[in-house]
Nucleic acid binder design. Structure first.
Length: 249
DNA sequence: AGCACA
């Protein structure tokens, strides 16, 4: 008969809706400023953001708080973005458990908290148990809810309308094609061919008229592309140093 | 896994 109440307790935890969302399962390899900026970019689709907070302490990495001006924005954000692939991991989003300081300050209810448990700042250099270095980027998470059935590859997950996918800026793995950026817009293939063709294995330059300033340079194999990259990295065509990375496949 | 406010 009544089977409509499950929508309310999607997290299995009882936290009342409020204007701050708590996000975890974030990719811990992403630098903090980049992470916060990307979170801001993504979540500003749902309303005005007052603040984005994230920390890199052991207890808090992989997590972030996004404070909206309106609680409704937070609700929409959760509904639309929970399990959203973000830097190759699915964001898990809930309402934050406690009121954010910015909000309390606006409320007038802010009371400076007592010194909490002394934050373990990184004073010593003990790093015994942090060797989880296994790169698990791109592994589908098997434990996420029903909507997609069995987890599809992240690359196939549909994105909510109006939200651009955030592609990991993680460097592409070494391969035989180089991606060259920061070229003067007048650059022609011939101009840079002079440089790239002096390296063994050079095959071709590809440029797209619609996208000035970039080029793809193909070599026979990744050894050769790597040598060329190392030789030409930062080389200045006019005055701007070119930025060379491996192309995404 | 882990809910803070440098």
């Amino acid at each position: 008969m009544e089977m409509q109440q499950e929508a309310n307790q999607q997290q299995g935890s009882e936290v009342s809706p409020n204007q701050t969302i708590y996000i975890n399962n974030l990719n811990e390899k992403v630098k903090l400023d980049v992470l916060k900026k990307s979170l801001n970019d993504v979540f500003s689709h749902f309303g005005k953001i007052l603040e984005v907070k994230a920390f890199k302490t052991l207890k808090h990495k992989g997590q972030a708080w996004v404070v909206f001006e309106e609680a409704e924005s937070a609700s929409t954000a959760i509904a639309k973005m929970n399990d959203f692939p973000f830097y190759d991991k699915r964001m898990r989003i809930q309402y934050a458990k406690t009121k954010s300081d910015v909000v309390a300050k606006a409320d007038g209810t802010f009371v400076p908290r007592e010194k909490r448990k002394r934050h373990e700042e990184k004073g010593g250099k003990k790093k015994k148990d942090q060797h989880h270095d296994s790169t698990q980027m791109g592994m589908a998470n098997s434990a996420y809810p029903s909507v997609y059935g069995t987890a599809p590859p992240l690359s196939q997950v549909p994105y909510p309308a109006g939200v651009k996918p955030i592609l990991p800026e993680a460097p592409a793995p070494p391969n035989n094609i180089l991606f060259v950026q920061n070229l003067p817009h007048e650059t022609t293939p011939m101009m840079i061919q002079m440089f790239f063709s002096q390296y063994q294995g050079f095959k071709e330059i590809r440029m797209v008229e619609a996208k000035p300033g970039i080029a793809f340079v193909e070599y026979a194999d990744e050894m050769q592309s790597t040598v060329a990259m190392q030789g030409l990295q930062g080389f200045k065509i006019e005055q701007d140093p070119m930025l060379i990375t491996y192309a995404k496949k």
